[in-house]
Amino acid sequence: MFPVSKEVALWLAPVFGFAFGWLLERGRVLDYNVIVNQLRLRDFTVLKIMLTAILVGGVGVYALVELGFARWHLRDANLGGAGLGGLLFGVGMAIYGYCPGTGLAAAATGRTHALVGMLGMIAGAIAYAFAFDWLRGTVLAWSNLGRVTLADVTGLPLWALYAALAVVAVGLFAALERWQARVRA
């Protein structure tokens, strides 16, 4: 029964996308001010959403894979690509105030500057496609560990890492809430 056929998946794609866009809007992250104030360490909405999504999503997907209902979808740990890409991404996100998903959805809520950023995204993708051959021989050839997880590189079992993530995330959330309550008071 699952996963469904490619044809059925095509019909479900906009439904899942819709849920994602809806959640982003209700979560206030289509607001430039919220994202930029996260990077200025004045508003922790983005971090709370992302870490909770990773924790809840991760524990659930781990259980579903163990029970045989899902499989992993790991990508290569290309350290040059992910590291340099991440650094560049942070610069762009601070300037634009959005990541690609939030920029797309924000443009659909009347934010014209988010729409202009989407035109930039198209330009950036075109630039990448033309730089691809060169990047393939340089940055992307530096170091590729393959489809590895933190369990592979640390030698610890996955369940222990998820447990550690839960402890760290919940501890961080508790500290953030306490700090924010103090700032407000």
Binding site: F20, M50, A53, I54, G57, H73, R75, D76, N78, G81, A82, L84, G85, G86, L87, L88, F89, V91, G92, M93, A94, I95, Y96, G97, Y98, C99, P100, G101, T102, G103, H113, A114, V116, G117, M118, L119, G120, M121, I122, A123, G124, A125, A127, Y128, A129, A131, L135, V139, L140
Partner: peptide, 26 residues
Amino acid sequence: WAFLGGALIMFASRLANGCTSGNGIS
């Protein structure tokens, strides 16, 4: 600046093979 920032995040996402959603969360 929005145009430039948008271009940067897209270029960077392709270099990293994913963005905040595909890499960060998924």
